[in-house]
Design a protein around this nucleic acid. Sequence first.
DNA 1: CGACCTGTTGATTCTGCTCAATCAACGTGG
DNA 2: CCACGTTGATTGAGCAGAATCAACAGGTCG
Lengths: 212, 212
Amino acid sequence: MHIQPSFRARPGSGTGVPELLSAMQPAAVSFHPADAVIYAPGEAAGPLYFVEFGCVRLLRVTADGRRQISAFHMAGEVFGFEASGVHDSFAESVEGVGLRRLRPANPDQAAGTMLQLALRNLARTEQHLMVLGRRSAGERLAALLLDLADRQESDGLVHLPMQRLDIADYLGLTLETVSRVLRTLKEQRMIRLRSTSDIEILDVAALRALCD
Amino acid sequence: MHIQPSFRARPGSGTGVPELLSAMQPAAVSFHPADAVIYAPGEAAGPLYFVEFGCVRLLRVTADGRRQISAFHMAGEVFGFEASGVHDSFAESVEGVGLRRLRPANPDQAAGTMLQLALRNLARTEQHLMVLGRRSAGERLAALLLDLADRQESDGLVHLPMQRLDIADYLGLTLETVSRVLRTLKEQRMIRLRSTSDIEILDVAALRALCD
DNA sequence: CGACCTGTTGATTCTGCTCAATCAACGTGG
DNA sequence: CCACGTTGATTGAGCAGAATCAACAGGTCG
């Protein structure tokens, strides 16, 4: 894993990402091994982060230890937005991850692209609210698998970079339930488990029917 | 209810709202009676909306009719952000509501303030993810009551502009559960129900302990 | 090999949902 | 003024889905 000097166009990440970066003084790629803390609540916010490769999780923890992952960010995406000057969440690497800090030279000039990126994250988060508030366990897993399939341009093969506990904490479930639901989806011939972290989607229509 | 020519400073709405408005060509106040649709999914997005008075709900509905309210917006707040050019949610009035359309003359110039407002909504939504994903029914109600108490500057008296079904669809519960939990909080002497829509907070510390 | 970590599976419990009845507040019309 | 219908809120009984507690399997690494 080493520094990649150019920005790669990423599938499924929408438009406008490459061009925005030139205006935002991207720093060199920094590497973070798995489960490293990139920032923590209370730390000063400011620079954004562009994911060069790997996967990052954003999460909050309650006083009694319950975790909620608000988002995973994959290659080509940008995170680190905060309304106040201080981070509210943890950002941690899921697997080894390469990041570029973005430090806009002229904040006013970059505000337009930052707004676009922030709105994309807002839309994703609002969508996730529906999943957590109104979806059954099976529907939640289906939504995650389709979302990942969409963000990777895999034809029918989805890679899960995160492990079961992270999936559970993202979907508001327990890891046991995640495991059981995956088995159920498998028994219904909707998916096939190549390995614990590689899932083959056998029936996209059926999965899509589960989440609308 | 009639047009109010000046912008009122609102408690709990944070900073920067009044000054932003002058840069955004606010239109005259339009009035919407209760349960009116302000915009619907599929409609072209563009202008933002400033809430002059009243309360608005943002919501999505699944194919089989399950509702999830992603946010309530009260006087002094701004909503209507969309990543694409098209709305994903319904915006509806909860009670009679007065709105001003904001149509930035120069989008680049307004991007900075729009970014601030969007980030505020993003932070709120991420916070709500934790509530829906990891909180019990009692904790969810406590969080809502404290949030409303904070946004109104009521000392101990919270007004609920929305009815039980809306509360339930915001918190990912059923209206029966909302009713039952309110009774439990009442029996525990944490709140008192002046009427169905006016709640007196008797023990802030206890409520706060429920949500951290 | 054995310790450890992750994931799977099973048995049981419990929180919140579903279905349903009741109640209070309100408006309308006889 | 009162009978009636409507709407929102409350309460109860039974149920279901997911959590909890617990055991076990497979892989990896020392």
